[in-house]
């Protein structure tokens, strides 16, 4: 996989993701725990953003909101012009299946299914025929370099291979946006490097917009833009406007 030489983002287009004054809190018993407070920023189409910040700062929460698997308390999130905070549960599910690819820290593959079946699974939600599904899944696994592991169960794959399978599953439906919550958090350095190469390649070559939560400076280095959260507030690494325009900021160490 080639390292991207230039951001694939098309700066002039409307932002892929537009987060507007989003707040989110959780209630624990009587206590209200604010997690995100009035967070706003844009992520341009084709951008590769790293979200950093100390543990508990709300990174995962923000990512979940962007991916449409959690609900905001207030504010709105526009993705490709659609305000996903107004969608019903089933509309949201349909939207996710088309627009979002998920990469989890612990891969979350189905242990009883083979790599090929795992990758094929999201295509059940498309009108593709069984044969087309298999072809697409094989192509996705080829793209992540696992053509020789189609029939392996997750338990028969290394951590890096499992994460590559998960990436194949994330891209098989060809979504515009990939969200990754600490995708290298459970991997050794070499495997982590491979996964980051792969993601950078997907961003550069296929134009996927990527939002990645990470603690790993090495991972953040691969992104074009690093956003930091602290206690639910967005810290602007550039010292510029808190909203940011999302365009090709240089990657920064936190």
């Amino acid at each position: 996989m080639s390292v991207p030489t230039a951001p694939a983002g098309d700066g002039s287009a409307s932002p892929a993701i537009d987060i507007r004054s989003v707040s989110k809190s959780y209630t624990r018993g009587q206590q209200i725990v604010p997690v995100l407070q009035d967070v706003s920023f844009h992520i341009a189409r084709g951008e590769f953003v790293a979200l950093m910040g100390p543990s508990g700062s709300g990174k995962s929460t923000l990512l979940n909101l962007i991916a449409g698997i959690d609900r905001v308390d207030s504010g709105s999130i526009l993705v490709g012009g659609v305000d996903i905070t107004t969608l019903s549960e089933s509309e949201l599910a349909r939207w996710r299946s088309r627009s979002i690819g998920f990469i989890f820290q612990f891969y979350n593959l189905i242990p009883v299914l083979s790599a090929l079946e795992n990758v094929e699974l999201p295509l059940l939600l498309t009108p593709l025929s069984a044969r087309e599904r298999r072809e697409h899944a094989k192509a996705a696994l080829a793209l992540v370099g696992l053509s020789d592991r189609l029939d392996h169960k997750p338990s028969e794959l290394s951590g890096g291979q499992q994460q590559r399978t998960a990436i194949a599953r994330a891209i098989v439906t060809d979504p515009d946006i990939l969200v990754a919550d600490e995708p290298t958090g459970d991997l050794d350095r070499v495997s982590a490097g491979e996964i980051l190469d792969l993601m950078a390649g997907l961003n550069a070559n296929l134009g996927k917009t990527i939002v990645m939560v990470t603690h790993d400076p090495r991972a953040a280095e691969r992104a074009h833009l690093v956003r930091s959260l602290e206690k639910g507030l967005l810290i602007d690494d550039n010292g510029g406007d808190g909203g940011g325009n999302g365009n090709a900021d240089p990657a920064l160490h936190p």
Partner: peptide, 16 residues
Amino acid sequence: LGEFAALKALGFGGGY
């Protein structure tokens, strides 16, 4: 539970 959550994230509904 985790698998079900992942399936739901992928867009599968409660019906599936």
